[in-house]
Design a protein around this nucleic acid. Structure first.
Ligand SMILES: NC(=O)c1ccc[n+]([C@@H]2O[C@H](COP(=O)([O-])OP(=O)(O)OC[C@H]3O[C@@H](n4cnc5c(N)ncnc54)[C@H](O)[C@@H]3O)[C@@H](O)[C@H]2O)c1
Ligand SMILES: NC(=O)c1ccc[n+]([C@@H]2O[C@H](COP(=O)([O-])OP(=O)(O)OC[C@H]3O[C@@H](n4cnc5c(N)ncnc54)[C@H](O)[C@@H]3O)[C@@H](O)[C@H]2O)c1
Lengths: 231, 231
DNA sequence: GTGCCTTTGTGAAGCCATGCACAAAGTCGA
DNA sequence: TCGACTTTGTGCATGGCTTCACAAAGGCAC
């Protein structure tokens, strides 16, 4: 469940816009690497895979950073979006649950390059505790609260089995964390002010299957034949 | 974008509804495991973390499967949603790119339990080819098209580096695949009729960082109105 | 400076999703 | 059988998001 953050309206940036800013940032970084100095909304929209009017409206929420007749300065826009997203500062992230998925995340370099620093790996399994992964040592989740407080962890990634997720969630919130990324297939219950985002790969596959089924058969199998089966 | 022709029949289920059906299904399975026979929209909505009116409207798109005064039959609703999502049939999935993430996905049991069968693991690295993971042998991605055709793969998961993603995408589409789940941080260009869903963990973290920053400082660092807020 | 050309920023319209509120429909006990 | 009670299914209002279309703004050539 994703709770709405009332504060997001303080500067009036719609949630839909915030969700696209990282997309623009990625496209801009690609342009910067190729040495592009300025880019029009049309070209940037193409690179980001969105409508150009939508892109302009999104960017207008941050300020008037474009030049009419020219476009946007790539470097300047990268900075402005990064600042708006809070990527100009360093975020300490802890990963709880170092199984298949937790290891993949720990080894992933794409986080660090975006200002996210993995500051702790925690697991409840003694067989896993002590493992060295990506330069870190897995610690026992008994020390979860201590790790969060001592290392200034502000974002926690939950990659435990579903049965442990709510318990872990409660503990990290009690320790002061208000931003959680949840991979466990369970609806987390959290108090107001805590932001939970979820990633459920199984749901994505199911959505694909829905559309795939429609392409092949035009709908659920034998839809009409089943109409009278209820009751 | 895919344009749908509205039929006289209620075959047009809104995307927002489709995206929630797996959520309901998960909640229903939890209820079924605990032996619950019927459930009201209120209770099911609570378990799924949505508004009850929204849940009823979503379910109404599938048909009138509830009983007024009683609620919904758990087993029957599980079947109806599964059928609508196409989970009553078996989907063969191939994972391309067997690195950190690809391995985690291959080892994950949550796919198989929902009707998705991993039918192939493919990688371009000879050092990886031949590895045994979750009962499968990693094959060379040269044989991508053959694997897709021979094993009836209809959904492909791309877990390669970003630089290889578009190329892999083009190949699987040429081989007839029209459903792709992409983990690489790039915008894939595909022809009409091909569905691409993306999962970008980095984007999720950036969205969390945006909200986290607002909680802590009230906005981006060095905001123009910073001085005026003192006092 | 002047005029032309490109591109931004945004008003306005349309679309879709959400959630309230309630009549209709069905259950259940007497 | 009947009436009280519960819960569904949905009409409708509200609000947010998307897209179009264009005036205003700025660069550039001369
Ligand atoms: N692997 C995938 O591709 C994938 C895909 C979708 C969803 N998921 C979900 O992500 C989660 C993790 O998946 P996985 O494949 O890594 O599972 P896993 O079993 O390999 O790893 C889970 C880890 O969490 C640890 N753990 C258990 N309870 C804990 C606790 N209370 N505190 C700290 N650590 C604890 C376990 O010791 C284990 O190391 C699961 O909820 C799974 O459903 C995984
Ligand atoms: N690991 C994570 O947690 C994570 C998180 C977010 C995004 N991603 C993205 O997911 C993708 C995979 O991440 P990873 O950590 O597993 O990377 P990885 O480097 O560990 O694995 C990539 C694999 O793809 C293979 N490969 C390369 N080119 C190929 C080709 N043309 N055909 C087939 N296979 C090919 C490589 O041999 C390698 O085994 C990347 O795009 C990454 O940005 C990963």
């Amino acid at each position: 469940m994703i709770r709405r953050i009332p504060q997001a309206r303080e500067r009036g940036i719609p949630d839909a816009t915030v969700a696209r800013l990282p997309l623009y940032l990625r496209a801009l970084n690609g342009l910067a690497e190729r040495g592009t100095a300025t880019v029009s909304s049309e070209d940037l929209a193409l690179a980001a895979g969105v409508n150009s009017a939508k892109l302009r409206k999104d960017l207008s929420h941050l300020g008037s950073y474009g030049t009419r007749g020219v476009g946007y300065d790539v470097q300047y826009l990268i900075y402005q979006i990064s600042r708006e997203l809070g990527l100009t500062q360093d975020w300490a992230v802890a990963i709880v649950g170092v199984g298949n998925l937790g290891r993949a995340l720990a080894n992933y370099g794409g986080f660090v390059s975006r200002g996210f620093r993995v500051a702790g790996l925690l697991d409840a399994d003694p067989a896993v505790v002590g493992d060295h992964i990506a330069g870190l040592t897995v610690e026992h989740s008994d020390g979860l609260e201590a790790v969060i407080r001592k290392r200034g962890v502000s974002i926690v990634v939950i990659a435990t089995p579903a049965t442990a997720a709510q318990q872990v969630c409660d503990r990290v919130i009690a320790a002061g964390v208000t931003s959680i990324l949840n991979f466990a297939p369970v609806v987390l219950t959290v108090p107001d002010g805590v932001d939970v985002r979820k990633v459920d790969l199984s749901i994505e596959l199911q959505i694909l299957a829905f559309h795939e089924q429609r392409k092949v058969t035009g709908g659920p199998m034998m839809a009409e034949d089943w109409a009278g089966e209820a009751g």
